[in-house]
Nucleic acid binder design. Structure first.
Length: 312
DNA sequence: CGCTGTCAAGACGAA
DNA sequence: TTCGTCTTGACAGCG
C-alpha cells in the first residue's frame, strides 16, 4: 500500500506566490488589462518556480491555486486566458509530466451547484468551466475538480436533490471531472457517498471534516468510498484541528498531528489500496516534511523517495 | 515597517 | 429583508 503526500498551492520554502490577485475594483479604475496581464504572467512564473521546487523535493501530488488567473470568472471582465498564455501552459505541463505529478483543483466556497438562486448556479458553472479549461490547457491526466455539496437551504434531503438535479444538467465534460468531498458541517461521509454512488463520481474523503461532522460506522463504508474511484488512485485530505475547543476545532492547524494521520491510515489499511493524501495545513509543505520526519521515527513505513512510502 | 481594512464571489442565523 | 459573521490570503493604504 503506497502512500504519496501532497500539499496545497504555495510552498513556504520560496518567496513566491502563484496566487497574486487583482480585485475588480482595482481593475475597473482604468480597465487595467496591462496590470491583469502582468499579474497573470507573474503567477505563471511563480507556479513554474513552485513546480521546480516540487520536482527537486520529489513531491508528486499538488493542488493548483484557483487564483492563477484573476477575474477569469468575473462576468464583467472578458479576456483570453488560454491561447494567449499557451507557452506557459506548455512549460508547466511538461514539468508536471516530468515528475509524474498528480495535480488537482478545488474551487472555493463560491462554487455552489445546489444553490437555490439561479444566478449562483450560473456563476458556479462558470467557475467549473474555468477550472476545466486550466486542467485541459495543462493536459492533466485524470483531471479532477473537487467540490463540496454546498448549501443546506430547505434541509439536507432537498439540498441533495438539488445537487443531483443540477449535476445531471451539466455538460458531459464537466460531469466527467467532478469529485465530491464530505464537509465539516452538513454533508457527512454517508451523505456524500450516497450522492457519489448515485452519480457515479469519485469521493474525496476528508478526515478532518469527518471528525467535525461524523457519520456512524465509517469503517463500514470506507470500502465503498475507495471503490468510487474505480481504477484511479483514490485521493484523500488530511488536516488537524487548530484547537480542541469547539470554536476552533474546524480550523486548520499549522501542522498535522501524527495521531490523526495514524487514525486515517488505520481506516484505509484493510483495503491495501495505493492512496494520495493531500496535506491541508497552514504550514503547507513544511507540515508535509514535518509529518514525514515523524513517520520516519516509526518502523512501519518503507520510504521509496522523499514523500512516498509503503505502509507495512 | 507593521497594522488594519478590503476584496468578485455564498450561506446562514440574528435582528 | 437586511446585516453581521464565518473564513481566507493577498495587498493597498495608512500611521
Amino acid at each position: 500500500m503506497l502512500i504519496r503526500l501532497g500539499y496545497v498551492a504555495i510552498t513556504n520554502a520560496l518567496d513566491v506566490t502563484s496566487s497574486s490577485v487583482l480585485t475588480f475594483t482595482e481593475f475597473n479604475k482604468n480597465k487595467d488589462f496591462d496590470k491583469l496581464d502582468k499579474i497573470i504572467k507573474s503567477n505563471f512564473e511563480d507556479l513554474i518556480q513552485i513546480l521546480k521546487y516540487n520536482i527537486k523535493n520529489n513531491i508528486h501530488f499538488y493542488r493548483l491555486t484557483s487564483k492563477l488567473i484573476p477575474l477569469a470568472t468575473h462576468n464583467e471582465v472578458n479576456f483570453e486566458y488560454i491561447n494567449k498564455y499557451k507557452e506557459y501552459y506548455n512549460e508547466i505541463s511538461k514539468l508536471i509530466d516530468k515528475n509524474h505529478m498528480r495535480v488537482d483543483v478545488h474551487p472555493d466556497q463560491f462554487c455552489v451547484l445546489n444553490s437555490t438562486k439561479k444566478e449562483v448556479i450560473d456563476s458556479s458553472i462558470e467557475i467549473l468551466k474555468y477550472h476545466f479549461n486550466i486542467l485541459k490547457a495543462l493536459k492533466i491526466k485524470n483531471p479532477i475538480i473537487v467540490l463540496h455539496v454546498g448549501s443546506n437551504v430547505l434541509g439536507k434531503e432537498n439540498s441533495i436533490k438539488r445537487f443531483i438535479n443540477t449535476f445531471n444538467k451539466l455538460p458531459e465534460k464537466l460531469k466527467e471531472v467532478i469529485a465530491l468531498e464530505n464537509d465539516d458541517k452538513v454533508f457527512n461521509a454517508k451523505d456524500v457517498l450516497y450522492i457519489c454512488k448515485k452519480l457515479n463520481i469519485p469521493f474525496v474523503f476528508d478526515f478532518h471534516h469527518h471528525k467535525c461532522n461524523p457519520c456512524d460506522n465509517i469503517e463500514d463504508i470506507m470500502k465503498d468510498i475507495i471503490n468510487t474511484w474505480d481504477n484511479i488512485r483514490p485521493k484523500m485530505h488530511i488536516s488537524s484541528p487548530k484547537n480542541k475547543t469547539k470554536k476552533e476545532y474546524r480550523s486548520h492547524h499549522d501542522y498535522i498531528n501524527y495521531k490523526d494521520f495514524n487514525e486515517l491510515i488505520n481506516l484505509i489499511k484493510p483495503y491495501k489500496k495505493d492512496i494520495d493524501i493531500m496535506i491541508e495545513a497552514k504550514m503547507k509543505d513544511d507540515a508535509l516534511f514535518r509529518l514525514i520526519r515523524t513517520i520516519k521515527y516509526y518502523n512501519n513505513y518503507k520510504f521509496i523517495d522523499d514523500t512516498s512510502f509503503y505502509v507495512l
